[in-house]
Amino acid sequence: MASDIKHWANRFKTASDSDATIGAMAKYFTCSYMWDMEDAKVIVEMHDGKVKSINTDPAPLDAYDFALRASAASWREFGRPVPRPHFHGIWSASFRQDLKLEGNILVLMQNLRNFTVQFELLRKVGVPV
């Protein structure tokens, strides 16, 4: 599992750093966020549009700006090439499924365009749960 999640992190970093849509407006995409997938947690730190680090084994006091928390089953739905209705985005899943948006939501809103594009990379990269 530890190896799997590190491989996933490498694939996600490569996908994100090479994504043209993110690259087109990357200059101020700087923030950190946690994805809590029930059976795995990661903290992604972004700096100027690039993945600076992905912490695949967060300690209790490791900091981040905001978090997305949902069941492993929901994350597997997010990672399908074509997600089913209401698993196809963070708004739909928070309105109709079990996704919770926590922490400093203002930072999420400040980076919403690029974060939304990045979240959809899961459809190509998959999820580590």
Binding site: H88, G89, W91, I105, M109, Q110, L112, R113
Partner: peptide
């Protein structure tokens, strides 16, 4: 559920919040 202050928050880019805030109202297909 959609009459939200986020659409006008002065510390965020309102144009992008509105546009990306409705993004997943559309189908991925």
């Amino acid at each position: 559920g959609f009459f939200l202050d986020w659409w006008h928050h002065p510390h965020a880019n309102a144009a992008q919040v509105c546009a990306s805030g409705v993004w997943d109202l559309m189908a991925p297909q």
